[in-house]
Simulated scan of single mutants.
Amino acid sequence: MTTTPRTSTGTDRALAVAAVRDLLLAVGEDADRLGLLRTPERVADLMLDLFSGLGVDPASALGAPVALTENEHPGELVGMTGIPFRSVCEHHLLPFDGVVDVYYAPERHIAGLSRIASLVDLAARRPQLQERLGQQIADALMTVLRPHGVAVRIEATHGCVAHLEPRAASSRAVTVATVGSIPDATWRLAARDHSAS
């Protein structure tokens, strides 16, 4: 079964297909040989899907926040851990993937948990850096929910590291982005509980 790739606004599939063909020719390949005839289309469709978040504000994935009433209190911290993602490193256009843990300390608004997963996915669908990805997720949550604070932890493996430094192929990069403030005791409890699972 084939699926139509998601694409961002302003994409040009024909130009992308031609660019992949040109790249094959540039590295000395015969772009007309049987095994490569449809490769430019396949690669272009894959890249258009992987970059479908370009031109889209990641915060839009959160939709309208859920307002809490005066009698509701969501607790000191809301967390969603182990959100899988895949992105493409902007330095070598190789994939990196892993998991994202998102924590926020609500004030008067919360987000649906599936919306947080959608935010991670949308922010990842563009040429990206792991450090920037965490900050974009944190900033989007701060903008939409206006919580006391947000912390985003990402752990990922990188294709460029595996290719350039094969002995470090199984290494994992860890980044943490924080905005605002989360009580230290609460953050330590969340981090401890997550590491024990």
Rank of each mutant, 00 (worst) to 15 (best):
M1E: 10
T2I: 15
T2E: 11
T2K: 14
T4Q: 13
R6D: 09
T7H: 04
G10L: 11
G10Q: 09
T11E: 09
R13E: 11
R13P: 08
A14H: 13
L15Y: 12
A16N: 05
A16Q: 10
V17D: 06
V17I: 15
A18D: 14
A18C: 05
A19S: 13
L24H: 02
L25T: 14
A26Y: 02
A26W: 01
V27Y: 05
D30C: 07
D30T: 07
A31W: 06
D32H: 07
L34C: 01
L36G: 02
L36I: 02
L36Y: 05
P40V: 10
E41H: 12
E41I: 02
R42N: 03
A44T: 11
L46H: 11
L46N: 06
L48R: 02
D49E: 05
L50C: 00
F51M: 05
S52H: 12
G53M: 02
L54M: 15
G55A: 09
G55L: 11
V56T: 15
P58C: 12
A59E: 11
S60G: 02
A61S: 11
A64M: 08
A64K: 13
A64E: 14
P65K: 12
V66M: 15
V66S: 07
V66I: 15
L68N: 07
T69K: 13
T69A: 15
E70F: 11
N71Q: 14
P74Y: 13
G75S: 10
E76W: 07
L77V: 15
L77R: 10
G79S: 15
G79D: 04
I83T: 10
P84M: 09
C89Q: 03
E90K: 01
H91A: 03
H92V: 01
L93P: 01
F96S: 00
G98A: 07
G98N: 07
G98M: 04
V99F: 05
V99S: 02
V100C: 15
D101M: 03
D101F: 03
D101S: 09
A105D: 07
E107C: 01
H109V: 01
A111E: 04
S114G: 09
R115K: 15
S118M: 05
S118K: 14
V120G: 09
V120Y: 06
D121R: 05
L122T: 07
A123N: 06
A123H: 04
A124H: 01
R126M: 02
Q130N: 08
E131Q: 14
E131F: 11
R132F: 00
Q136C: 03
M142I: 10
V144F: 13
R146A: 15
R146T: 13
H148K: 05
H148Y: 11
V150A: 07
A151F: 00
A151C: 11
A151M: 14
R153P: 00
R153E: 12
I154V: 12
E155H: 04
H158Q: 04
C160W: 00
V161N: 03
A162G: 09
H163V: 12
E165H: 06
E165N: 08
E165L: 09
R167M: 10
A168V: 00
A169N: 00
S170K: 10
S171W: 00
S171I: 00
A173R: 00
V174R: 14
V174S: 06
T175M: 12
A177N: 03
A177Q: 03
T178C: 07
T178V: 12
G180N: 12
G180Q: 11
G180E: 07
G180Y: 14
P183H: 06
P183C: 04
T186W: 13
T186M: 13
W187F: 15
R192S: 15
S195T: 08
S197L: 07
